[in-house]
Design a protein around this nucleic acid. Structure first.
Lengths: 340, 340
DNA sequence: CATTGGCACTCGCGTACGGGGAGTGCTACC
DNA sequence: GGTAGCACTCCCCGTACGCGAGTGCCAATG
């Protein structure tokens, strides 16, 4: 019994099952693929694959269906990259390039992935922690409130209102603004504390409180991982006929609303050294997502690590090669556009 | 045949149907409600109500179900306000008050409504057009780019990057910033053009280009209605068992992803003079929503018209009184918090 | 004239039954 | 190792049937 053919059989089963959404039997397999052997031989291979846990049958005497483990092997070894057509590539480029601002770019990217994969698309906003500060702006509001606005090099804007114990002195605010920007601009979070620590020295004791409060807000905001946001699109694709069991979309929608779940998955998948990371079924480590797979990749990297991630969530029975290349293509364009 | 009793019967049918999710028959009606007459009498009333188009039977010889028209009458005339329990009210207050910034407030409000109504909640971001400017900030980025940041009185922040034809002069930017804020702060969009028109006069001819570009960006941003955003929560409630036909959630999800659809509905319902506006089934004027109802109310109003709207979308067979009071309660707290 | 009890009628729904078909595992053979 | 044949298993689907809920109508009644 040839080992190679067994893998071919697994690939054929996955491809047929993805295409037809129905358990695939030995006869159908030899008819649709040039395997050069008879159904009986395939049956022997199938028995071995089932023994190994790569496929299973829904009921006795039905066709075979890939298991999580089968999909995993398929993704790791068998799938060949499926490049997008050149019109598709051009469409992605122009669609993203005509965006107005960061929100718009992210919004378009997520819709694009939903459209291309016909699944649920997820985009993580550029992370504050990994991006650098471009500018800090201080805006007095009334006499006792100060609005702190942070602008990152990815174009993201974050704001906090600060309540003060003493009335504001405009000249102190102006000086603080200048010094803040000199010290902090262009620095990443990890480099900030040192730079900001010495900031208070140049100010009168009476103003120390203000300076410290502002510095605290800046650091806190940048450190606040909970501020990370994800944006969804294409949830309606969950309800398309022929998708996963229609009843099972409830738990999936619940999981998708829990930003925490998605953020945890994103950060866990960032560890993955592969260009495109894939989590299949139980690998997602979340009950609501056991019947789905999650394909993600990083974007916004500048030589080093990526700033955030985008991805697509679909049924176990998804078109893995297609989804992976669509996600990667959009990520590349996104990276290029954010670099401007 | 008493006209009053007929309305009582309709109310009873709506209440029972909402509670049991099953067509209600004449016998069940007299058992569950103290109507003081026999099933046969109820049957006569039912025949009249059916004649009038307020109820219908799914199949011959099944119980009756309210029609859109029936729900409409119920909402307009029959439903009594259902006040929230005082622990509920307190929970709303504290939950919203502990929010950090505008994004957080909106996020909490939408989750709250989803939780209270067990339906899909929708919140429209405070509209730029109707809110007033609190502050304009100009931030040079490099020598030829200027970041324009607008802050509204509802705490919303909007930004645009401007590309210039000449190098920036810091002192000109500072003067422009000062004058912009003097002229524009506190003004609504409708009052802006006049105030900004005279702004360029105080500047040297060489700087006119810069001034005009900034003014154009400010006006354009405030005028840009497409920037209106809506935020959703509780979509998983669509898939709860016992909700509308599980198959019909596809079109609903599609409609919810089209921000345009929701924005159109919001703006149309803003015309409604009622405290809480309701659109039932076909009244939504959208194919995907024919099997749902939409309950909305305005928030953020300061004596005058409201700034934006919040609402809840659920099956035709929703708890109208409960939904209406939940939506209104959250809107009130939201208004109070934004006023700070 | 509104109300009521009685009664025949209509359907939807759940259950049971049975044939057809697809697919398998096993065994004997090349 | 690969192949053909064959008995077996089980799902699926169409049909039939009885039960129950609910209706519409009619004649009787206060």
């Amino acid at each position: 019994m040839s080992e190679d053919r067994r893998l071919d059989v697994l690939r054929a089963i996955v491809e047929d099952y993805v295409a037809t959404k129905e358990p695939v039997g030995s006869r159908a397999l030899v008819e649709r693929h040039a395997l050069g052997v008879s159904p009986a031989t395939i049956r022997n291979d199938m028995a071995a694959l089932e023994e190994g846990g790569y496929i299973a049958q829904p009921h006795t005497s039905a066709g075979r269906v890939p298991t999580d483990k089968g999909y995993r092997l398929f993704v790791d070894q068998l799938s060949t990259v499926k490049p997008l057509s050149s019109p598709e590539r051009r469409a992605i480029g122009t669609f993203l390039e005509t965006a107005q601002d960061l929100d718009d770019v992210v919004d378009r990217a997520v819709r694009l992935i939903a459209q291309l994969t016909q699944q649920v698309a997820v985009v993580q906003y550029p992370s504050l922690r990994r991006s650098a500060l471009r500018h800090v702006e201080l805006v007095p509001v009334g006499t006792r409130h100060l609005l702190v606005v942070l602008i990152t090099d990815t174009g993201r804007v974050e704001q906090r209102t600060l309540e003060l114990v003493a009335d504001l002195d405009e000249s102190v605010v102006a000086r603080l603004r200048t010094r803040l920007n000199v010290s902090a601009a262009g620095r990443r979070l990890s480099e900030l504390p040192v730079a900001l620590g010495e900031l208070a020295e140049g100010f009168a004791p009476a103003d120390q409180h203000l300076v410290n409060a502002v510095v605290a807000v800046v650091e806190e905001t940048l450190a606040q991982e909970s501020e990370e946001r994800v944006v969804l699109a294409g949830t309606a694709n969950l309800a398309r006929v022929g998708s996963t069991d229609v009843r099972s979309i409830g738990p999936v929608l619940e999981a998708l609303e829990e930003q925490v779940v998605l953020l945890r998955l994103f950060s866990e998948m960032a560890e993955d050294h592969a260009a495109v990371a894939v989590r299949i079924g139980r690998e997602t480590q979340h009950d609501g997502l056991v019947e789905t797979s999650f394909v993600t990749t990083g974007y916004g990297d500048e030589g080093g690590g990526s700033v955030a991630r985008i991805g697509s969530i679909g049924p176990l029975r998804m078109d893995y090669p297609g989804t992976m290349s669509a996600v990667r293509a959009v990520a590349r364009y996104l990276t290029r556009i954010l670099a401007q």
